[in-house]
Each structure stands twice: as structure tokens, then as C-alpha cells.
Design a binder for these strands. Structure first.
Lengths: 343, 343
DNA sequence: GTCGTCTATGACAACGTTGTCAAAGCACCC
DNA sequence: GGGTGCTTTGACAACGTTGTCATAGACGAC
């Protein structure tokens, strides 16, 4: 900018005025400045601008588990759309469920003075460390609450962690719906594939599964529950084991999109006909050999709602923390309506 | 930092030394500073740090078409992994193939002084405007070259635009392989679904289709080629039209993941048996009613390679621009091996 | 005692902006 | 002629860091 000022024969401040389109610059002066800018290829330095203004960086941080997972990339898209409307860019990072990586991302983002943070918290670290880092930066949590949460609480205990806005899916209700759908089709031996027990959504969906059984007087068989599967391969192995049981399940509830895919692969490989309802919708679910019945929701909408809450906080909204619970809906496609086979 | 210095009873510079782990600070002084930092919750301001250092922001910009498209989110993941290794964060934005949006993103990112840019260029804007904006910032292009490119050139003309590193897929070769596979299975009436003709990859894949036909002495029938389809729905309509022709195709080559899905939907709805080979692999392609034969490649690898090139440029590499062509491979799954029906 | 060397600390400028304030120039009016 | 108000411009400080240089004290060697 100094160079532009020199080239145009004006002061720094005048260049600043022109760049920012302020009033009270004579048209011919502005013209001289503009041509100097074009000649020198000047671009305003936003860092200095933010520093001086004491102000906003017009960016927000987004921490998810893995951007390559469609669930998270849809969230990212929703977030981006709202951020864009607010004139902000999104700096995103994948934590891979690694608390150290998550803390490092949070620290980097806060040191860069993002205007706010959107976090899908990893669940294996100490929430207080995280809380300490984000102190002072508006933050909204997605998909999982920031605190430890009880083993299967709908309202997790947040005593140790300051409360934040949180946007969740109705995991318990969705899982219950899925399992009740299978029960309604005559199944009694229903398997349950869920993610790592540390993960809030896994616990909640497991709870929904148990509630549905209990509410319908079906005894829960622990051998049919496989927790701790975090990827397609793990889910596939678990499903293969389940199908090899002496008294195998006639139906499965799969706790997320990756686990559903794993289960489908294993079922396909075994050549068995097993009913399946999955949590999370996914592309092409309707075109599979047996179209897949799922508990669907809108990840992009979760991203949008969280970004809106964050936007409000950034603007100074001081209302008590909100907790939004997004609905799910059952999409009936075929796999969930397979009747129990006579084992 | 000023407050920390005051609280610890030392100078600004000493706090700076402690924060940056420099030598020549007495342990007890460092301890006083650390406790003041903890007490006040101080976090270093990275903006000021970068400004003063005249240095790197340790961030790179990534401009893709749509992060919600798995093709691009896999690229994003590859980019992120390499950026992370280089200690950088990724600021990403979706251009939605809108040149105005793309320019705005580029401008924002450059003004934020990202260390470099990774761009999947939109093709409907003026490449010179883009070139002007990125002047001075290292940039690498992904999936498409920055210049206009000839209507079907393998090596596009870049006369008007300064050359940059570019990482492309072997679109012509991949498309050729796909179509030759169909020809080898006896098909002569092979339809071709491709994206907007402005888009480089669409032109190249179209060209590969034509080359395969020509090389095998099969006359090209223009009524079997549908260009300008940019989403699932558009591809579905086109496919439905093709199937309704008096002399319908017995096979289809679908030019990308979205078009493949659209074609599959239309074929499923029509209940016809038509051979299909798609460009881009996708999750569950193997589990569909008829598993889908595809021309596969590694989007994450494209992201990684581009990010590596960018990293080198940021470090000052001044070699002439590289052009990397990533290989494709045909994955045979069933849909491409359906024989021609007796129409 | 004096010099040199090394450790530990601080003062100050600078990075590239913009907000504040002052001032110069001009037109207008009494 | 002098006051008033408006437009246009610029000087300067400040944002929060860190690099450069200076200084003060401790220690050992001569």
C-alpha cells in the first residue's frame, strides 16, 4: 500500500480510502490510485486489516472427524453455505477421532482468531482441556455434546464443562423407530451394530435399540450386540460372526452409514437374506439389490443450524445455550421389510 | 501479551521468548510467565505473528466445485493430509462452477495471504481474470487446466494464461478404455453421457469415446451423445430419452459419478437391461443389483499430488510447471459385461 | 583491577492496515 | 473581510507480535 501511495503521489490514508470505497475522495485522485493499484498488482492485506480493526477474521473453524465421509462432507457443505451468507470462509480440519489432533486443530484455529468454532468433538480426550482452549471463542457443537455424557443419557451431564450450543440428531428416537419397524415385521432376534462405546451417538443408538426391545417385551440378547466397530471392515467382520452364530439374527440394526455398508457387504458375501435398517441415509441406497431401509436425517441441515447458532453468538447473542434435536424419518425401501426366515 | 508481561513483571520480549521456547530465559522467570499465561488464558495472536514475520500464514486455499460431492471431498481429504504434514491448515470453498463465486473465493484467499492455492477451475469465466488475481500466490490446478483448452485437445493451449502446475486424470485414455470394453463385448450402439461441454474433463471424455469408436471402425451416431448434463436428474432425463429412441443404445458410457447415478436410476426405472460403464468409482458400486463396472482413479491421490507440488512451490521450487497425468483402471463388476440385447 | 565473554533482559522499530484528528482549500453568506 | 461549513487530504498512533540491538550483571582470566 505504501508503494501504491508513492506511485499515485498521495498519502497512505488516501489509498486506504479508495480501497475501501470511502467518501470524500476526488474522482481524479481515486482514478490515479486505481491505476497505481492495477499497475502494481496491489492486494490489500487482510491480516493487517483485521489486526488493526481489532476485529473479525471473517472465518470460522470446522472440526469434523473425516471430510471424506459423506456424512461429514454434507455437514461441511451446510456450514459453508451459512458462513458464506455471513461473509465468512471456513477453515476445516479432520480430527480422525484423535483427541490430540483435535486439540491441535482447536489451538491453531483459535490462534488464528477464527470468529467461531464448529466442533464434532472427539470423545476419547479430556473435555476440560478442550474447554480451556476454546475459552473466549464462540463455539457450537455438532452431532455430539461436548461433555462426557452418561453411559446412555439423553441429557448428558455437563457439570465439568461449560455448556455450549449443541445440535444433535434424535439418535435414541431414530434407533427406536428402526428397531420397532423390524419388530413390527415379526423379528425377535435383532442384531445391533454400533460404533465405539465412547461415542455419544453410538451409546444413544444402542440405547434406542434396547428401549425398543424393552417396550415390546422382547428380551435383549447381548450376543447379538456388537459395539466398537468404527469402520466398514470392522462392521463386516462383526456381521459375518453374527451370521455364523448357531442361532443367528433374522434382522440387523446398523448404527451408521459405514456400519451399514459393512453389514451389507457381509450379508452379500454370505448370501443370506437378513432384514436390515441402517442409521444415516446414503446415495444409491434405493438402487441396491435389496434397497435399504434407513433412518434418514439431514446432515447439511445440521451444519446449517449449527452455523446459524454460531453466527448469532458471534454477533453477541447471550441467550442461554440452545440444544437442538433434529428429527429423523424412516425411509422404507425393502431391506427392513424382509420377514424373518425360519432359522 | 502486554497483560501477561505486566502480570509477570517482565517485558513483552521476555514473554515472547517464553511463548516461543527461545533460549536464555531463567527457569524461574519462565515459570512466572507461564503461570501468568495460564492465569490470564493468553493465546498468541497468529495474525500479528504472521504480519510481523512477513511470513507464512501456514494455510492454503482449496477451491473445488462442491465439497458435498464425494469426488471433491476425497480430494479435500488428500489435500488436508499433505497440508497437515507441512503444518498448514486448509481453507476450502465450493465454487459451484460459478466463475463469480470462484473469483470471490480467490480474492478472499489471496487477501488473507494463504501460502498457496489449489484450484479446480470453473470453466465458464475468463481465465485471465483469475490469472490476474492469483498473480504472486503459488497455485496448482486440479482436475482441469487453467486455460481455455481446445475443444478436445489433450494438451490445451495455454497461450493466454501463465502456465501452472496441473494435476489431471487420464480422461481420454480412461474413456477410451471404457468404451473399448463395451465394444469388446459386442456393443455397437453405445450412448455417451457427458457433462457441460465447457468442462475440460467432459470434452476429454467425449473425445475418448469418439476415439474408441473410430479406432474400432464403428461409426459415431450423434443422437446417442448427450452432453451438458451436470447433475443426477439431468442425466436421468437424458438416459430416459435415449432408452425411448426407436433404435435405443445397448450400452452407455457415463462421464462421471453423478451421471452414472442418474443413468442407473433411469435404467432401473425403465426396467431395461443396458450395459453401463461409468467414469469415477463410487461407494457400493459393487453392491448394486447389477454391480457397476467403472473407470476408477484415486481422487485423494490427486489431492495429495497437487498439494505436494504446491508445497514445493511455496518452498521456492522454480522448476518449469509440471503436468501430472494420473492413471485410471477399469474395474470389471458386471454392468459393463452385459451383452447387447437383440433390439 | 580490568578486560572479555556469556547469560538474561529490555527498549524500540517494524510488519500493513485503519481510526482519529487536524488542517488546508474552497464556496458561500452576512 | 471574516466567519461558517463543507470537501479533500494527510500525519500519526495503534493493533499484537518479533527481530535487532543495547545493556546490565556474573564469572573467570590475566
Amino acid at each position: 500500500m505504501r508503494d501504491v501511495a508513492a506511485a499515485a503521489g498521495v498519502s497512505l490514508k488516501t489509498v486506504s480510502r479508495v480501497v475501501n470505497g470511502e467518501d470524500f475522495v476526488r474522482p481524479d485522485t481515486a482514478e490515479r490510485v486505481h491505476s497505481a493499484i492495477a499497475r502494481l498488482g496491489f492486494q490489500r492485506n487482510d491480516l493487517a486489516r483485521t489486526l488493526r480493526g481489532g476485529g473479525r477474521t471473517r472465518s470460522i473453524g470446522l472440526i469434523i472427524e473425516d471430510v471424506a465421509n459423506p456424512f461429514y462432507s454434507q455437514i461441511a457443505r451446510g456450514v459453508e453455505d451459512v458462513a458464506r451468507a455471513g461473509g465468512r470462509l471456513v477453515i476445516s480440519g479432520s480430527s480422525d477421532e484423535d483427541p490430540a489432533r483435535e486439540l491441535l486443530l482447536i489451538r491453531s484455529l483459535c490462534e488464528r482468531r477464527v470468529d467461531g468454532l464448529l466442533i464434532v468433538p472427539s470423545e476419547t480426550g479430556d473435555p476440560r482441556l478442550r474447554a480451556e482452549l476454546i475459552a473466549g471463542t464462540p463455539a457450537v457443537f455438532l452431532d455430539r455434546p461436548p461433555g462426557p455424557g452418561g453411559p446412555a443419557d439423553t441429557e448428558p451431564r455437563n457439570d465439568t464443562v461449560p455448556p455450549n450450543d449443541t445440535v444433535l440428531i434424535d439418535n435414541v428416537g431414530g434407533a427406536r423407530t428402526a428397531v420397532e419397524h423390524l419388530l413390527a415385521h415379526g423379528h425377535r432376534r435383532i442384531a445391533c451394530l454400533v460404533d465405539l462405546p465412547e461415542i455419544f451417538t453410538a451409546r444413544q443408538r444402542h440405547q434406542g435399540y434396547l428401549e425398543a426391545l424393552a417396550a415390546n417385551g422382547v428380551p435383549a440378547d447381548p450376543t447379538l450386540v456388537r459395539t466398537g466397530r468404527h469402520d466398514v471392515r470392522g462392521a463386516g467382520h462383526a456381521m459375518t460372526e453374527l451370521l455364523a452364530l448357531p442361532d443367528p439374527p433374522t434382522a440387523v440394526f446398523a448404527g451408521n452409514n459405514l456400519l451399514t455398508v459393512g453389514a451389507l457387504r457381509a450379508i452379500g458375501a454370505a448370501g443370506t437374506r437378513v432384514a436390515l435398517v441402517g442409521f444415516d441415509d446414503f446415495e444409491l441406497a434405493d438402487l441396491l439389490a435389496t434397497p435399504v431401509t434407513v433412518v434418514a436425517h439431514e446432515p447439511a441441515d445440521m451444519g446449517r443450524q449449527a452455523a446459524h447458532l454460531l453466527e448469532a453468538r458471534i454477533r453477541g447473542d447471550a441467550r442461554p445455550p440452545a440444544r437442538i434435536l433434529l428429527p429423523t424419518r424412516l425411509i422404507v425401501r425393502g431391506s427392513g421389510e424382509i420377514p424373518p426366515s425360519q432359522g
